[in-house]
Amino acid sequence: MTIRNVFVYLVLILGAYLFQTVLYPLFILPELRIDLFLILVIHSSFSQGKSRTLVLALFLGLLMDVGLPLKGFFHPLIYLGVALLASPLWHNLNLHSRHYQAIFIGICAMLEGGAIWIILRLQGAELAEVPNMLQILVWRSLTSSLVGPFLLSALERLDQWLSTLMVLQESKQG
């Protein structure tokens, strides 16, 4: 991974973070919010190595936990779990297909929401008792399934563009 790639990933992470903390609450209904960090982790699982993805998952999880009333290691655990699940599935199953990707992203979104529901339930929080939490969970999973593959596709194109740029640069130097 070149410095340019690292820089592009940092910009993507910052963009996703700003989108989720500033723009989401203003413009997008809770039901339609896609976890962009989750998409980044899944994309990294598909395109980067396992070790890089685990580092990215840990970083994104910690970043996500900064804004939450939970202290540490909640989202890292979820993202690490997704990364560990996605890498072998990518290699062993046909996750290149957009249909399977949609199902996989939907399942991941549901697992993430489910884990949060369990934590809230363990804390005795009121939100966990509200039926619309389930509604939000279902809608979010559906939205993630529908939009997620397109985001993955865009990230793949970005990766391709970066590799082409690198090859061009190397050929020029040659």
């Binding site: 973070y17 989720q20 903390t21 500033v22 989401y24 609450p25 809770p30 919010r33 976890d35 960090f37 970043l63 996500m64 804004g67 939450l68 009333p69 939970l70 989202h75 929401g113 949060i116 809230l120 939100l127």
Partner: peptide
């Protein structure tokens, strides 16, 4: 400045 990034909690910065 900002809101909860996950959308599951209700916090602000």
């Amino acid at each position: 400045v900002a809101f909860d990034p996950s959308g599951w909690f209700q916090t602000i910065l």
